[in-house]
Nucleic acid binder design. Structure first.
Length: 437
RNA sequence: GGGCUCGUAGUGCAGUGGUCUAACACGCCUCCCUGUCACGGAGGAGAUCGCCGGUUCAAAUCCGGUCGGGCCCGCCA
């Protein structure tokens, strides 16, 4: 008989149907047994009176795959308003070992238990609340793609094996490439800029690899980045507006569509304004120093404590959990970023902060060939090094004023759901200690 | 890389020198239970307390080492 999904059960009242899936929960009440079956669409309840049917499941654990045929009955007491009666069970894949981690109750997300959570990830993800995180992640990426697509962006894939240390700065994973020195890409930065010369507007969603010895709740060695680059934008404001609209659109849709999952994780109530508040880094140093008595004026960038503080401030003061920290100090300048013509001590770069953490860096790029070449030399980068030669060609042969962002998808999902560790928003996280599963 | 912390059944935890023959909850096994949905009830199995060494009459508990985690900082997404 053709398979009917759990969520379609209520559309088949009065019919005899077959469902296929995993045993999610058994409740034996003597003469009456309730079984919840999980499939890709959710759960369906089966009621069995026949003891010989229940006996088929003796010794079999949660995770056992069955198909069950039965009559669909409307029942207000059943979850979803309908259930299967007179079920006939066929065990397809018996499971005799009990699961190492619970799949029908919320799992512990306490920091000290994350190790167990990840060690048992394969089974733990079957847990409905755990899945919820990744349904939201999937939806988040879908919303972002839809938004960018409707703004004429082309999705690209840049190489992840690159020559040398392409961008400078962050530590990279070195590897042997048929006898040549190569590394795993720490960012699609150079490639997406080159592609502005082709499509004007491009984006990429893919992995970036960071070999830094960071051991925090917000760092992983393999991060999923959303990289955006758009040509023919003239002002930094224009760029920030665009990213702000994308974030607003994405997050508000998630909150509208996934209330149930967000509630399970006690996600905070969403506070966003259409226009995200913007403060310069200097202003934030000033406000933070005044508020805490701790002098941060000479810091080149925001400290994690300042990031948390300004998010808290913007939430209370501006009604927005998202905030831009603009005019990054020149000390944090990277060669491809555009120096602020109105204030050469700052860079036309902003960090997007959300719920206490940096989600994205959003700079304008230096698109003048001569200036860019000089900026490279100032940073000690050889413009003729492998990788940079092609990069510069894009400028030599015409690249318009452009800007974009590197946007951490893992952190975004983490904070949308209201989690405390970026790893919880990653299926199989990689950090300095973890390489499996 | 620096600092601080933690390590007890499959899972989550209690116990910080002797009453520990290590408690409780979930899960598991047996039995009872016809509307459960974190079902309920009765009983049972399961841990030599990460590992090694030391102090002590006595160590899960104190000390040292070691292995494995976690958190913060630096760096960044």
């Amino acid at each position: 008989m053709q398979r009917v999904l759990a969520k379609e059960t209520k559309d088949n009242i009065g019919k005899n149907i077959t469902i296929k899936g995993w045993i999610h929960k058994k409740r034996l009440l003597g003469g009456l047994t309730f079984i919840n079956i999980r499939d890709r669409s959710g759960l369906v309840q089966v009621v069995i009176n026949d003891k010989s049917e229940v006996e088929k499941l003796r010794g079999l654990q949660i995770g056992t795959i069955v198909d069950i045929s039965g009559n669909v009955v409307e029942e207000t007491r059943a979850p979803g308003g309908a259930e299967l009666h007179d079920g006939v069970i066929n065990v397809v894949v018996p499971v005799v070992d009990e699961p190492p981690i619970e799949i029908d109750k919320p799992l512990s997300h306490k920091p000290e238990n994350l190790d167990t959570l990840f060690d048992n990830r394969v089974i733990g993800l079957r847990n409905l609340s755990e899945q919820g995180i990744f349904r939201i992640r999937s939806q988040t990426l879908k919303n972002i793609r839809t938004f960018l697509d409707s703004n004429d962006f082309v999705e690209i894939q840049s190489p992840k094996i690159v020559a040398g240390n392409a961008e400078g700065g962050a530590e990279v994973f070195k590897l042997d490439y048929f006898g040549k020195e190569a590394s795993l890409a720490q960012s699609p930065q150079l490639y997406k800029q080159m592609m502005v010369g082709v499509f004007e507007r491009v984006f990429e969603i893919g992995p970036a690899f960071r070999a830094e010895l960071s051991a925090t709740t917000r760092h992983v060695s393999e991060v999923t980045m959303l990289d955006i680059e758009m040509g023919f934008i003239d002002t930094h404001e224009e760029l920030l507006d665009f990213i702000q609209d994308m974030v607003y659109d994405t997050v508000t849709k998630i909150y509208a569509d996934h209330d149930d999952i967000l509630k399970k994780f006690n996600a905070p109530e969403l506070k966003l304004t259409k226009k995200f508040p913007r403060y310069t880094v200097a202003q934030i140093h000033e406000m933070y120093s005044k508020a805490t008595g701790e002098n941060t004026h000479s810091d080149k960038d925001l400290s994690p404590a300042e990031e948390r503080w300004i998010c808290d401030y913007a939430k209370k003061h501006d009604g927005s959990e998202a905030v831009f920290a603009t005019e990054m100090p020149i000390e944090a300048h990277k060669f491809y970023q555009k120096i602020n013509p109105d204030n050469p001590k700052t860079v036309l770069a902003a960090d997007l902060l959300f719920r206490g953490i940096e989600l994205a860096t959003c700079p304008m790029r230096e698109n003048n060939f001569e200036t860019l070449t000089n900026q490279m030399k100032e940073k000690g980068i050889d413009p003729n090094a492998p990788g940079f030669e092609s990069y510069l060609k894009a400028f030599k042969y015409g690249l318009p004023s452009h800007g974009g962002c590197g946007f951490g998808i893992d952190r975004f999902v983490e904070k949308i759901v209201g989690l405390d560790n970026v790893k919880e928003a990653i299926l199989f996280p990689r950090d300095i200690n973890r390489l499996v599963p």
